[in-house]
Amino acid sequence: MRNWKESWNRFSTVFYPILFGALMITLWQTGILHKILGADTFTLPMPHRIYTIIKENLPVIMQNVQATLIVALGGLFLGSLLGYLLGVVAAIFTKWGKGGLTLASAFNAIPIIAIAPILNNLTKDVSPNANIRSMVAKILVVTITSTVAMSVNAYRGLTEIKPFSMDLMRSYAATERQIFWKLRLPNSLPFIFTALRVSVPGCVISALVSEYFAEYIVGVGRQIRENIVLAQYATAWAYISVACLMGIALYVVLLIFESILLKGRK
């Protein structure tokens, strides 16, 4: 009985969102959604039309997806690495580390649209190649936006140790260094995934927005902007759909990694 309930739970967490998605697409394709929203088929084209555009322009769309993915994942990697290191520094110097992280969280409050143009100007001399310096600027935007979540969570993972674990380590006369490698680091692993659950969707959004301001014209976000301004809504929606798929795909990859790496944990 218990087993059945558990498997139903697992099934329903996937089933309900899919059911909801299918319902929305049905409402959309039948035009009922347009009536509810008061929209027309020009500004909100039918799903099959969006699908056709994606299918017909797959090579071009994939080029833009690639550019956006490099920015999102590059920034996510650098930001998470930096964030984790900051967490480690804060955990070693706990006296002021916690206060420091609180202040560093202020970085999270800076809107992407404010830092993107600033970083564009700051990176003008990085490379004579506009594509490269533009890419650097965009990656830095994502780096900044994904640093804090990781540093705060890494700090918690490294410091919120179960008292009995710490007592056990002390009873073994373990050095601080040993405690760090054998206890703190493994303890922080679930917290890394907590941080990534926030910053993975966040990195895609930051990448899309940073492309709006970039010097070199490429990327899914940039295409959304260009096409909306040119009143090409069907194409803009095609890129919006692709952006959604990218976010979902990255999140699924993260969940798969998480289930493998945290197997056997609570």
Binding site: L82, L86, V89, A90, F93, K95, W96, G97, K98, G99, G100, L101, T102, L103, A104, F107, L119, L122, T123, D125, V126, V136, L140, T143, I144, T147, S151
Partner: peptide, 23 residues
Amino acid sequence: KGNKGALMLTSLVMALMLVVTAI
């Protein structure tokens, strides 16, 4: 007590930004 840490953390991020502008 937190101030010194904050300074160090902010300056780390600043340093990262400066590296790219120093050229």
